[in-house]
Each structure stands twice: as C-alpha cells, then as structure tokens.
Design a protein around this nucleic acid. Structure first.
Lengths: 212, 212
DNA sequence: AAGGCTGCTAAGCGCTTGCTCACCCTCCGG
DNA sequence: CCGGAGGGTGAGCAAGCGCTTAGCAGCCTT
C-alpha cells in the first residue's frame, strides 16, 4: 500500500492529530475508507493497517464513526481554507477564480484518497456531525459564489445563473476525487490547470483575464 | 417512500425485468442502495421494502451482488444509449453536444436515485461484472470524445485537450446524480439546459451554433 | 381428484461485525 | 523499590449479516 501521495508536497498532513498512535490509526482509516467505503471497512482492517490490535482503536476513538468525523472535519476545514484564501485574495475576479479552481482541484487530485472519504462518505456521519459538516460546505459554496458575483458586477464574467454555475463549478472540482488515479497520465498540477481554463470559459472570461 | 420520479416521464423503467416480484425487489433495491449505499443495505431491508420475506429475494436473484449488477447493467445500457443516440445524430457538432449533455443530465436528474447507484456503487461489483460495466463506460467516453473531435475538425470548437475535456464533461454530468434533489428548486429540464450551455462554453462554441 | 410445479415463508445456520473487558506491559516521580 | 497512570493486548459477547433449507399454499394440467 503506497501512501506517498499523502506525505509529499511540502506540508505534513494530519500533523494536528496526536498522539502518534491516534494519527497512525486515522491514516489507516483514510486509506481503508477510500478503498472500500466506510460501511465495508471493518475496525479490524483499520487496526491491522496501523499494526495494532482491534481493541487499540477504542483507546483513541469512541466509535468508528468518530474516526470518520475527525477525517471529514479536518478535510473540510482544509478545503474551505483553500477556497476562502483564493476568494478573498487580491486581483481580478478572473484571477481569483483561476486560483480557486486550480488549488481546489490540485488538492482533490493530490490527496484524492482523503478527498474521496471527505466528499463521498457524508451520509455515513451521525446526524449532528453531518449538519456540522454541511455548514462548512455551505461556506465553501458561498466563497465560490462571491467570486462569480464579483466578476459579474465588474463586467468580467457573463454568467446568467450564478447559483447554478457555482454548483456546477464545485461539482466539477469535487468529482476529481472520484476519478483521479495516481497511475493515470495527468499530474495534479496539469488537471488543476486544465480545469481552471475550462471554468474560466464557462463564465465567459477571456483566458488572458486570469493574469491578475 | 415516494418513487414518483421513477414512474413519470413517458417511458416505463424496469419494464424489462420480469416477473413482477423480481421487478418489485429490484426497485426496492435501487431505493435502498441509493439511500444508504450497497454495503449498508441489508437483504432484509430490500425484501421488507418489497413487502416480502428475506428468503424471497433468493428465488429471483442468486446473491445481493447480482441485484446490483442487474441494476448497474440496465442503467449503463440506458446511459450509453442516450449518449450514442446524440453522438450519431444529424446536425452540427455543437447541436449534438448540446443534445448529448442535455439528455444525459436530464436522465441523471430525473432518475437520480437509479443514477446514484449506477454511478457510485461500481466498486461493490464482483471483478468480472465490474469489467463488463467498465467496458460500457469506455464506450460512453468514446461517444463524447467523438463529438468533441468532430467539432474540432470542423472548426466549430476550440478544445486544446480533447481527452481531458471529455473526462470533465462526463464528470460534470455524472456528478448531477450526487447533488440533485427532487426537493430542490430546479427541474431536471432546467439543469439539462444550464449544463448544455456551460459545456458549449467550455468547448468555445458560440451559443447560437447549437441550433442545428 | 390427483399430482406436480411455482412462489413464497418461518426458522435458523455459520460467520462477521462493532465494541468491551480483564489483564499486562513500560515508564516515572517519590 | 514502589505504585499508579497511560497505552496496549487476547479473548469474547451480543447482535446482525448473507444465505439455505424444509415445508406449504395456490394454481395448472391431466
């Protein structure tokens, strides 16, 4: 099992999870959930991947669902941070949209294992955890919508349906986590560049407008 | 449980499944798989929704996985038919792309319960069933790529990366099944129209070019 | 009326699941 | 040298899983 994709890239993921054994369990859970899905993953599988006995899991986490919640929370925090950073940055709306799509897609491709769990296992969360996460997603939506609205107001974009286009842009980016494969021909950077171009076309912005 | 979305629209879905009890079980399975996912759905749940005992399921299907395979096969056949019909139709490349995206998205929205199972439960299939389905998906990809290549050759489209754009277009359409909600504000037709417009912009076709 | 086929159920088998519990290391301040 | 706390294990429990089997009602044919 290769997890190089999670440890490269300059920043150390999951560094906020301590102690060490809790982090190893969480990383093992991310891999297992991404491969087989939350419901098809057993606590024995997670513990085994982390090199521990099944009982060890319950020293650090109350339930299997708490593990998913921690993963989902940390992942959504990161995704939201990426979008809000791009949305509130300097430069033109086109430049900010380019940066938002590019970095958001880059994250989904480079960390597609994590992203797959974060984006596709929402329904497995307990109701109170689910609504907490849904609120974070609402804020992600708002960040993208703000860029589009700014671009329309500034005359940079031609977007007849801002909420609908916001939905489509986020949907397009999120779905990268489903199909992206490290064995494929494209690097995360290439996919980010391709998608940024496609999205700028969707909003009717000239390609050169993205150069802030 | 309301299944009006599966019975409206002029064509009768699952009519190819007989006898009646087998169809009722299959429809029940579609609903259950879409709501909770394949692995989280029990055979008792499926049988209960169909108003039968758990054992009744095994008269018509050998295993729970065979149910998923039948659903996936029928759904993929329908999806492929929609794309190939549009791809080999008359008219300009822009007109065919418009029709393909519009009808493909319409199907994913109107039958989002079925589409969710078809598009997101692929990994739960047994290896030999999975590769059969993957072949159908390869042909869907080829149908869209053909339209894009035709448009580029005819000078209608400006698409620097045909395989990448094909992937993005299909990904965008497929993901409709994940977020579409009958309680939402948009009708399947409206989403189809919106997405057809967005995709035509992605390939650099003038909106009026779609009018064959 | 008899016989057999079809479609279904009640009961339950063998197994796996999430999770618990009694116990045991290792480290560390006094 | 001790005692307790934190991190770990082996064994196992109750519940739920996919699936099987024995048996039975209703209907078609003869």
């Amino acid at each position: 099992m290769d997890s190089a994709e999670e440890t490269t890239g300059g920043y150390r993921p999951w560094s906020e999870v301590t102690p060490d054994a809790a982090r190893r369990l969480l990383v093992a859970a991310v891999e297992a959930f991404a491969e087989r899905g939350y419901h098809a993953t057993t606590t024995r599988d997670i513990a085994g991947r982390a090199g521990m006995s099944p009982a060890a899991l319950y020293i650090h986490y109350k339930t299997k669902e708490e593990l998913l919640h921690r993963i989902s929370r940390i992942g959504h925090d990161k995704a939201l941070e990426i979008l809000e950073t791009a949305a509130s940055g300097p430069g033109s709306a086109a430049g900010r949209l380019d940066a938002a799509v590019r970095s958001f897609v880059l994250w989904h491709a480079a960390h597609h294992t994590t992203a797959r769990v974060v984006q596709y296992e929402l329904d497995a969360l307990a109701p109170e955890h689910r609504s907490e996460i849904v609120e974070l997603r609402r804020r992600s939506d708002a960040a993208v919508r703000r860029i589009l609205a700014d671009g329309v107001a500034a005359g940079e974009f031609d977007v007849p349906d801002v909420p609908g286009t916001t939905l489509a842009v986020l949907s397009l980016c999120i779905d990268v986590a489903r199909w992206f494969n490290t064995a494929g021909r494209r690097t995360p950077e290439e996919v980010g560049a391709l998608y940024a171009d496609l999205v700028l076309r969707m909003v009717g912005a000239a390609p050169e407008a993205a150069q802030k």
